[in-house]
Amino acid sequence: MTGRPQTPLTFREVLDLPVSVDLRTAARAYGICLATAYKLIALGTFPCETVRVGHRHRVLTAHLLSALGIEERPVYADDLGDGVALTLFD
């Protein structure tokens, strides 16, 4: 754990996360430092469920998004330009 500040994840970065993330990434999504994340886990008050894998904690991205109040992925203009969103409507 380092004391250097981490910038919070942007909305787009949160939407591009893989299926699960490490605790550092989840903490960045909430705008808190890693030490605070560990304290919240110890207190049982971390904003979403974590999964213990060995000595590490992982967070399922679906739980992270739900706790952040993100119910669905918005379609961006550049997604339309790349043809990504077109498959959703075919």
Rank of each mutant, 00 (worst) to 15 (best):
M1I: 10
T2P: 08
G3V: 09
T7S: 05
P8L: 00
P8C: 00
L9Q: 01
T10F: 00
F11D: 08
R12F: 01
E13G: 10
E13Y: 01
E13V: 10
V14P: 01
L15I: 02
D16K: 01
L17G: 14
P18F: 10
V19G: 04
R24E: 08
A26E: 11
A27D: 08
A27F: 11
A27L: 02
R28S: 02
R28W: 00
R28N: 02
A29E: 01
A29D: 00
A29H: 03
Y30G: 10
G31A: 04
G31V: 00
I32Y: 04
I32V: 11
I32Q: 03
C33W: 01
C33P: 06
C33H: 04
L34Y: 12
L34P: 09
A35V: 10
T36R: 07
Y38L: 15
Y38P: 04
K39V: 03
A42N: 13
A42G: 15
G44W: 13
T45V: 07
T45W: 05
F46G: 13
P47C: 14
P47G: 09
C48N: 10
C48M: 12
E49V: 13
E49S: 12
T50E: 08
V51P: 06
R52P: 11
R52V: 07
R52T: 07
R52C: 02
V53S: 14
V53M: 12
G54M: 04
H55V: 10
H55S: 12
H55C: 14
H55P: 00
H55L: 12
R56D: 06
H57S: 13
R58H: 07
L60Y: 05
L60N: 11
H63E: 14
L64F: 08
L68D: 03
L68E: 07
G69L: 08
E71C: 14
R73Y: 12
P74Y: 03
V75P: 08
V75I: 11
Y76N: 03
D78I: 07
G81E: 09
G81S: 09
D82S: 05
V84G: 03
A85T: 11
L86V: 04
L88M: 15
L88I: 15
